[in-house]
Amino acid sequence: MQRVNMIMAESPGLITICLLGYLLSAECTVFLDHENANKILNRPKRYNSGKLEEFVQGNLERECMEEKCSFEEAREVFENTERTTEFWKQYVDGDQCESNPCLNGGSCKDDINSYECWCPFGFEGKNCELDVTCNIKNGRCEQFCKNSADNKVVCSCTEGYRLAENQKSCEPAVPFPCGRVSVSQTSKLTRAETVFPDVDYVNSTEAETILDNITQSTQSFNDFTRVVGGEDAKPGQFPWQVVLNGKVDAFCGGSIVNEKWIVTAAHCVETGVKITVVAGEHNIEETEHTEQKRNVIRIIPHHNYNAAINKYNHDIALLELDEPLVLNSYVTPICIADKEYTNIFLKFGSGYVSGWGRVFHKGRSALVLQYLRVPLVDRATCLRSTKFTIYNNMFCAGFHEGGRDSCQGDSGGPHVTEVEGTSFLTGIISWGEECAMKGKYGIYTKVSRYVNWIKEKTKLT
């Protein structure tokens, strides 16, 4: 034993070699072989497995989906700052455009905790909710729209109204504003409101030439003092309507412009014939205590009207009353817009006519005020429907199939267009061939041609 100890002390290297040989010859039971080890760690190889990531292109799944990435790591994937920024906006807080917040056709661009709407022409605001041009839906104005110097929408209202708090709607500024039905039992019968379409306001006024200088022999019209197929109006439903009495009662109609003036057809009036105007009328054979009678003290036909040349060209006249009318729910003026808007309103496509005229061709006159909704007829169809001249200051309205029309005794009465609950004068009943005849239409004086003249002559002093 002493000898062994001496050998170990003198030859430590020998001992180490012996131990190493023993270990190498022993069977290893701690580690699995290569094949079995792979069965336990069965993990798919990654895209760049075996390579240094710093030297390969980034992978979106590896960089940002398996674990949260930084902007720089995302930049490695896209290799483009702009594309990385677009991805980053949604990656950080989701897609803010998912709810489609942009209105009126706006395009949404996502941002971090926010979004941006790219608005089409005519709109602005956070969600493109603000109209900035009158060309689109009248700028959301209830009545009139004008573009300011910086191309912003400025709404306005006709006389007797003021802008509401929203700067879009119009509200009454006087007790009985024009064009409004205020009798409670008839307010439910107000005709369907007309909503502004998209309009090209630059070209809204037709490029028409008034044929002022045409000389033409007097034409022989049949029954051209021209509501057939209409309905009984309720008291106060058309408070701007008046009836004219002269040699015979209810020979023509008219509309209240203001307390002192009536507008009617020029062919209705004769110099030297006494005319009485009755406002607030409903049943011409009954006294309903809503009527107001006034005498006409002055007749002003349009300066281009000449019955000797043509009885229905420039067929418009103004009547001055001896005493002002007292405005109330049964006696209310009709609204008159400017030339541009009167023309736009007419193009809405349908209007209402009213009167006490004959209820059928050569038949009896109506006792109760009649009204009828009539569609506008395109000019080409209008011209083809008659052998008589249709001037540019006239328009056609009615039904091709016949059966409904204005008729004798309705002449001078109103053709009105309702705009968001307020009625505007767009025409004056003038003439036609018979009444409600198939293929024939009622012919009306186009008020847009005469609004400046009306307003100039009827100013209240």
Results as ranks from 00 to 15, higher is better:
264 T>C: 06
75 R>I: 15
4 V>M: 13
28 C>H: 03
403 G>V: 15
382 C>K: 02
25 S>V: 14
290 T>E: 05
240 W>A: 01
362 K>D: 14
411 S>N: 13
97 C>A: 01
157 C>T: 00
111 D>M: 09
404 R>F: 13
433 E>P: 11
432 G>E: 10
90 Q>K: 14
40 I>A: 15
416 V>W: 15
77 V>C: 05
45 K>R: 11
61 E>P: 15
364 R>T: 14
208 E>A: 10
233 A>V: 08
69 C>T: 03
333 P>Y: 00
281 E>I: 13
310 N>T: 07
454 I>K: 00
326 V>E: 10
32 L>T: 11
239 P>S: 02
422 T>P: 01
192 A>L: 13
365 S>F: 07
279 A>M: 02
344 I>A: 14
317 A>R: 00
32 L>C: 05
207 A>Y: 11
10 E>L: 13
301 P>L: 12
278 V>F: 04
45 K>H: 09
230 G>Y: 11
170 C>W: 01
107 S>T: 11
250 A>M: 07
456 E>P: 03
109 K>Y: 05
398 G>L: 04
406 S>T: 13
422 T>N: 03
61 E>S: 15
131 D>T: 15
171 E>T: 08
108 C>I: 01
85 T>I: 06
317 A>C: 05
366 A>L: 10
322 D>P: 00
83 R>L: 11
143 Q>A: 00
191 R>N: 12
375 P>H: 14
388 F>T: 14
151 N>E: 08
425 L>Y: 01
204 S>Y: 13
407 C>D: 03
414 P>I: 12
65 M>K: 15
83 R>N: 15
260 K>A: 03
136 I>A: 08
211 L>R: 06
336 I>R: 01
113 N>F: 04
357 G>M: 13
52 L>N: 15
181 V>N: 06
337 A>G: 06
336 I>Y: 02
113 N>Y: 05
446 K>F: 02
270 E>T: 13
152 K>D: 06
50 G>T: 15
15 I>D: 02
406 S>K: 13
93 D>Y: 05
289 H>W: 10
105 G>D: 04
324 P>M: 04
13 G>P: 09
255 S>F: 01
169 S>C: 04
350 S>D: 08
24 L>C: 09
333 P>V: 00
294 R>Q: 02
372 L>H: 15
67 E>R: 04
53 E>Y: 05
361 H>Y: 13
183 V>M: 10
366 A>K: 14
349 G>F: 06
304 N>V: 03
366 A>H: 12
298 R>Q: 08
341 Y>G: 04
90 Q>L: 08
347 K>D: 08
22 Y>K: 03
318 L>A: 03
416 V>I: 09
275 I>G: 03
130 L>F: 10
449 R>L: 10
403 G>Y: 13
158 T>Q: 10
316 I>Y: 00
338 D>R: 04
22 Y>P: 03
422 T>A: 05
245 N>H: 13
252 C>G: 00
436 A>E: 13
314 H>S: 04
196 F>N: 14
352 Y>N: 06
384 R>K: 13
29 T>D: 11
140 R>G: 08
177 P>M: 01
124 E>R: 04
148 S>W: 06
444 Y>E: 00
42 N>T: 13
308 A>H: 09
39 K>G: 13
453 W>S: 01
183 V>K: 09
238 F>H: 04
330 Y>Q: 06
236 G>Y: 05
299 I>A: 07
413 G>P: 00
384 R>Q: 14
334 I>R: 01
252 C>K: 00
210 I>N: 05
314 H>L: 00
320 E>V: 00
391 Y>S: 14
451 V>F: 04
303 H>G: 07
142 E>P: 02
88 W>V: 15
345 F>H: 02
192 A>S: 11
30 V>F: 15
401 E>M: 12
208 E>W: 08
77 V>H: 15
33 D>V: 11
393 N>V: 02
18 C>E: 02
286 E>P: 06
361 H>I: 13
329 S>N: 15
65 M>E: 05
254 G>V: 00
399 F>T: 14
42 N>E: 08
261 W>K: 01
455 K>T: 08
322 D>R: 03
183 V>R: 09
269 V>E: 02
307 A>D: 06
220 S>F: 09
160 G>E: 03
441 Y>H: 06
250 A>I: 07
197 P>I: 06
69 C>A: 03
439 G>L: 03
62 R>Y: 03
366 A>S: 05
341 Y>E: 05
170 C>T: 02
328 N>S: 12
368 V>C: 05
385 S>G: 13
44 P>L: 11
287 T>C: 08
372 L>S: 13
161 Y>R: 04
15 I>G: 04
146 K>S: 07
339 K>M: 13
60 L>F: 09
214 I>L: 09
67 E>C: 04
406 S>F: 15
297 I>R: 10
69 C>I: 03
27 E>P: 02
272 G>T: 11
88 W>N: 15
271 T>P: 12
279 A>K: 01
268 C>F: 02
269 V>W: 04
324 P>T: 03
381 T>D: 12
446 K>Y: 02
66 E>N: 08
221 F>Q: 08
288 E>A: 07
376 L>I: 12
395 F>I: 00
275 I>C: 03
48 N>T: 15
280 G>M: 02
11 S>Y: 07
313 N>S: 10
454 I>L: 09
141 C>E: 00
154 V>K: 10
47 Y>A: 11
105 G>C: 02
